[in-house]
């Protein structure tokens, strides 16, 4: 009895404290206090839907489009890699994109990676080897910030997993640059600060990255695909999906096999269970 009495007293006390000291002031403020200020940028943000036709790897049966991944790699190499690292990806991984071993060797050698002079032990540079990882464009975070208006360009290895709906986000961000509607901006007192760029798909719509894909034809694709801005954005978003999750397609394919097996096993388990219980069940009616 005393536990219950104590419980009732404690429960009423907690509720009283919560209602009188937390809820009541909150309700009062909500009803009579000033409306909470919202950042003017909220009026401009739009969720990015990604490319119109989606990606080849979308859905439970999705597959890589290797030509697209190779084009995306080309966009990364010629555009993004000036500022963004890809530190968890090694050149040898490029073989997953459909390059042959010799092509990977050549591709690795086209990059310059930090090395050590075998004679003097001094730091130097050398051509990359397949086992090397993509080099860092800046020697450290301070150098990266200093060269980029105080905004450190994030590593792109995992970018599509580190953002909500990442593949679509990357596509939308690359194609979301433009101007804020001037009338609307004047009304809410919004302006893009100097050194930043308006991008309706960036969470606070002012991004430090200058539009990286500025003109159609910026990259000349080796396979002859017309390099419009949406095309380049789609391809590099696909490539960055691969860098973030190289096992994506293998994972889905394994998944179908595993689930198929489990369905079979579960049906058998159900039949076995029903048969074991059959003798115990009351007859209907």
């Amino acid at each position: 009895m005393s536990i219950r009495l104590g419980g009732i007293i404690a429960g009423l006390a907690i509720t009283l404290v919560l209602v009188l000291w937390s809820l009541a002031p909150g309700v009062y403020n909500f009803a009579f206090g000033p409306a909470p200020e919202k950042q003017p940028s909220y009026a401009f943000y739009e969720h990015g839907e990604g490319p119109a036709n989606g990606f080849s790897f979308d859905g439970a049966f999705g597959k890589w489009d290797y030509a697209q991944l190779q084009r995306g790699y080309q966009v990364y190499k010629e555009v993004c890699s000036a500022c963004h690292s890809l530190k968890f990806v090694a050149f040898r991984n490029l073989q997953d994109l459909g390059y042959t071993e010799a092509e990977v060797d050549a591709e690795a050698a086209s990059w310059t990676v930090p090395g050590i002079d075998p004679a003097t032990g001094e730091t130097t540079t050398r051509p990359g080897e397949p086992t090397d990882y993509f080099p860092m464009p800046f020697s450290n975070a301070i150098a990266a910030a200093a060269a980029n208006n105080n905004a450190i360009p994030p590593d792109l290895s995992l970018i599509t997993k580190a953002r909500h709906d990442g593949s679509n986000y990357v596509y939308s961000l690359l194609t979301g640059y433009g101007e804020a509607d001037p009338a609307k901006a004047a009304k809410v007192g919004f302006e893009t600060p100097d050194g930043l760029y308006f991008n309706k798909h960036f969470p606070n719509v002012n991004i430090a990255m200058a539009p990286p894909l500025a003109v159609d034809g910026q990259v000349t694709f080796a396979d002859g695909t017309a390099s419009t801005i949406p095309q380049m954005a789609t391809d590099v978003a696909a490539f960055l999906t691969w860098t973030a999750e190289p096992s994506l397609v293998e994972r889905k394919q394994t998944g179908w096999f595993v689930i198929g097996f489990l369905l079979f096993a579960t049906v058998l388990a159900f039949l076995s269970y029903k048969q074991i219980w059959a003798g115990l069940k009351p007859k209907k009616g």
Partner: peptide, 10 residues
């Protein structure tokens, strides 16, 4: 939260 405690304790 108030209901949660009320439920168990009261």
């Amino acid at each position: 939260t108030a209901y949660y405690f009320m439920h168990f304790l009261v």
